[in-house]
């Protein structure tokens, strides 16, 4: 996994609550057996006027010019600003894969759905929870100034807008550690293989049917 230390970038505002993973990456694209290549179909139903299908050349499709990611001022954005309960719905990890493949490195919202939140960390995408008020203020700042940029400093746990006060955010220590160092979680867990085996032996004593 790639390390995440600091990220400075353009912010794209997606002013909707409860954006679900069906919206982030519609199901017809889940049929791929790869982890990459989902970017052109991120928010497919909102980005394009026609119905997308896998394997198509999306650059030739009619675009919905009103949709925020199609507006010229947000091209190249690497930070997504959005509303509460982002990523609800299905557990598909294709959602963070699509966001990353598109170029997003961090997402800021007042809250995230649990599974999506989890999945982000496994892929080096940083979900940041800020208060509703702070998110609202950022929306106004982004809309108010073309090219508005933000720096996310994971070490300091801060979102630093180009103007205004830095905003602190909370993050689980273990997840922070893994992101900062780009660690492979499976490798870390396998360091504890003996502990797992000892646990299994205790369980097998008490609940032998689990291991049959």
């Amino acid at each position: 996994m790639e390390k995440f230390i600091r990220q400075e970038g353009l912010v794209a505002p997606l002013d909707r609550a409860n954006v679900d993973t069906d919206q982030i990456i519609p199901k017809q694209f889940l049929k791929s057996i790869k982890r990459t290549g989902f970017g052109p179909n991120l928010f497919d139903e909102w980005r394009y006027l026609d119905e997308g299908f896998p394997g198509q050349d999306s650059s030739q499709r009619p675009k919905n010019e009103d949709f925020v990611l199609n507006q010229s001022r947000y091209q190249g954005a690497s930070i997504l600003l959005t509303r509460r309960n982002f990523g609800c719905g299905s557990s598909r990890e294709h959602a963070p894969w699509a966001l990353m493949d598109f170029g997003f490195k961090a997402i800021i919202a007042p809250s995230f759905a649990d599974i999506f939140y989890n999945n982000c960390f496994k892929n080096g995408l940083l979900p940041i929870v800020l208060s509703e008020d702070n998110v609202e203020a950022l929306f106004r700042a982004v809309e108010g100034k073309e090219g508005f940029r933000i720096t996310v400093d994971l070490e300091q746990q801060q979102v630093i807008p180009e103007s205004g006060e830095p905003l602190s955010f909370e993050i689980d220590e273990f997840r922070k550690h893994c992101l900062l160092n780009g660690l492979d979680e499976i490798g870390l867990t396998l360091n504890e293989a003996d502990t797992i085996r000892a646990y299994e032996a205790r369980r097998a004593e008490r609940e032998p049917w689990i291991f049959q």
Partner: peptide
């Protein structure tokens, strides 16, 4: 019983455990 993402599917396959809170 709960849903997990694909990286976690791999983690469970490889270690029979899950990092959880």
């Amino acid at each position: 019983a709960h849903g997990i993402g694909t990286s976690e599917v791999e983690h469970v396959l490889a270690t029979q455990t899950l990092v959880a809170k």
